[in-house]
């Protein structure tokens, strides 16, 4: 049992005013299921599919960033607006600030490179590996993409196998296929 909404909102206002909301949380519905969105003051830091274990998602964020995690949906309004447009086929490039804190050094390079693959096109794991200067490291690239903390917005779904096979996806292949179909128009 929790306290009434107005009281919770006043608490959130105070916490925000004092800069104590390290991680803001919101959820949204989407054609590929409910999405859990998290942002730090620096930017969007995590998107989790409903197939991911919530306790593990929160546990990792609490440990690596901060346990000062609060539902603060308004702070994610810009992200939700862009995602809604994207899922509606009306947005090709995301513009929201990104916080890369949950990606390691190598993963960050891979993901930044991936973010440059244009809407509607794909690249192979090998091509991304070449792009980050480790031509033989396509396996490591695969791992980095698999642990993408910000799927959809950082479009790891645009990386597929050479020869046209779809490859893997952290959120499951049906989601990857749905996203590629959306972008194919």
């Amino acid at each position: 049992m929790t306290v009434d909404q107005a009281l919770s909102e006043r608490f959130l206002e105070r916490a925000e005013a004092r800069g104590l909301v390290d991680v803001a949380v919101a959820t949204m519905d989407s054609p590929i299921g409910s999405l859990l969105l998290m942002a730090t003051p620096k930017g969007l830091v995590r998107i989790a599919f409903e197939s991911e274990n919530r306790d593990e998602v929160f546990g990792e964020v609490a440990e690596r960033l901060s346990p000062r995690i609060l539902d603060a949906p308004r702070r994610l309004d810009p992200v939700r607006r862009e995602l809604d447009k994207y899922f509606g086929g009306k947005l090709r490039d995301f513009d929201v600030p990104i916080d890369w804190s949950l990606a390691g050094t190598f993963a960050r390079r891979v993901l930044r490179r991936t973010a440059r693959i244009p809407y509607g096109s794909v690249a192979s794991y090998g091509e991304v590996a070449v792009g980050v200067g480790t031509p033989r490291g396509y396996r490591a690239v695969g791992n980095a993409l698999g642990s993408n903390p910000i799927p959809v917005v950082v479009p790891c779904h645009r990386v597929v196998r050479t020869g046209g096979a779809i490859g893997g996806y952290g959120g499951g292949l049906p989601r990857k296929r749905w996203l590629l179909d959306l972008e194919a128009g």
Binding site: M1, V3, L7, S8, F11, V25, F58, P67, I69, L70
Partner: peptide
């Protein structure tokens, strides 16, 4: 290294205990 006593998100602490604290 997974910390076995990881803190839950503060939101959960609030949701579970706010009413008792207020009372």
């Amino acid at each position: 290294i997974v910390n076995s006593t990881a803190l839950p998100p503060f939101q959960r602490v609030f949701d579970e205990h706010a009413q008792a604290v207020l009372t």
